[in-house]
Simulated scan of single mutants.
Amino acid sequence: MAIFLNSDSKVIVQGLTGSEGMKHATKMLASGTTIVGGVNARKAGQSVTVNDRDLTVYGTVAEAMTATGADVSVIFVPPTFAKDAVIEAIDAGIGLAVVITEGIPVHDAAAFWAHAVATGNTTRIIGPNCPGIISPGQSNAGIIPADITDTGRIGLVSKSGTLTYQMMYELRDIGFSTAIGIGGDPIIGTTHIDALAAFEDDPDTDVIVMIGEIGGDAEERAADYIHHHISKPVVGYVAGFTAPEGKTMGHAGAIVSGSSGTAHAKKQALETAGVKVGKTPTETAEHARELMAETPRPHGGH
């Protein structure tokens, strides 16, 4: 198994005909993802060839879903049009919308998230400003390199794209059930807690790795959730121990005010909840390796 994305997932790409959409659709197809079409209202009815495969471009997400049975959309639409693209995916009722686009204004992200909540829609949003989600050996929705790891029994959820890649590479010999980059913007869809809950329920995940960063209180809330609801071993890492106070570091959500949101405060909260927190990504990977060695494998597992 895996969480949110598996070998049965049928993926469409909003923005398929753009340079980023085409480039990453090519890589997704090469890694085994079932891409069934694209969406671009201005190029509806056209066909594009990606990796020797002809993909139809539909006018709307709803049309694409009706024609192909798609249940996942990966969104590469430029920031100016991203809000409308996500709302379109939500209104069509797609199961998972992976918003890769960087630089979406916060009020636009707030608008499409509020729209999802207000309409009671069940669309799961990952992102924005994220690398996406991969269940190695099954499907890859986004820009995560598929060749840096293998399938296995570690679940990974991370705010940082580059640290997602580094952790996957460090633990490539053990492998992952699913790895999710949730994005570092102030307003995101799927949270650490959402992923933790899903990994807890996934019979093919034995150990969970959670990567956070300075700013906000998401990691503190995740620590509280782990304390009360997670029985599987969790390893953590918090990026930003050396960040100067009051400065935004890379991600729009990574800003510290006073003592709130510091890496030290987050590390303390996680350790209080029983999480082994590494001082570096490599040390974090070693903690995960140790816990995997200690965790009994289910019969027939990897």
Results as ranks from 00 to 15, higher is better:
231 S>A: 14
301 G>M: 14
289 R>L: 08
148 I>C: 07
94 I>V: 13
233 P>I: 03
297 R>Q: 14
38 G>P: 11
108 D>G: 07
213 E>G: 15
62 A>F: 06
87 I>C: 10
43 K>F: 00
62 A>N: 08
130 C>D: 08
211 I>P: 09
131 P>L: 08
187 I>T: 15
264 H>G: 10
215 G>S: 09
7 S>L: 05
118 A>D: 14
152 G>H: 00
117 V>P: 00
80 T>P: 03
261 G>M: 07
17 T>N: 12
80 T>H: 12
101 T>C: 10
173 D>T: 14
157 V>D: 07
24 H>I: 02
92 A>D: 04
69 G>H: 11
219 E>N: 05
41 A>H: 11
297 R>T: 01
189 G>V: 06
65 M>N: 01
223 A>S: 04
218 A>I: 10
111 A>N: 09
99 V>Q: 05
15 G>N: 09
95 G>S: 10
261 G>W: 01
95 G>D: 06
288 A>N: 08
3 I>G: 06
74 V>N: 07
192 H>E: 08
255 I>F: 08
18 G>M: 04
23 K>L: 14
148 I>T: 07
225 Y>V: 02
73 S>K: 10
170 E>T: 00
88 E>F: 06
133 I>Q: 14
295 T>C: 03
186 P>V: 13
180 I>E: 06
68 T>V: 12
233 P>C: 06
151 T>A: 14
262 T>W: 05
253 G>E: 01
238 V>T: 05
139 S>Q: 13
239 A>G: 13
6 N>K: 01
296 P>C: 09
271 E>N: 06
166 Q>N: 09
25 A>L: 07
72 V>F: 11
178 T>F: 03
239 A>N: 12
284 T>V: 04
245 E>V: 12
35 I>Q: 08
100 I>L: 08
108 D>V: 04
237 Y>E: 09
295 T>E: 00
44 A>F: 04
24 H>L: 05
176 F>C: 04
162 T>S: 15
233 P>R: 03
32 G>K: 04
53 R>T: 13
247 K>I: 14
254 A>R: 06
275 V>F: 02
276 K>H: 13
286 E>T: 11
17 T>I: 13
80 T>R: 15
108 D>K: 05
75 I>S: 11
291 L>S: 04
152 G>Q: 04
101 T>P: 11
287 H>S: 09
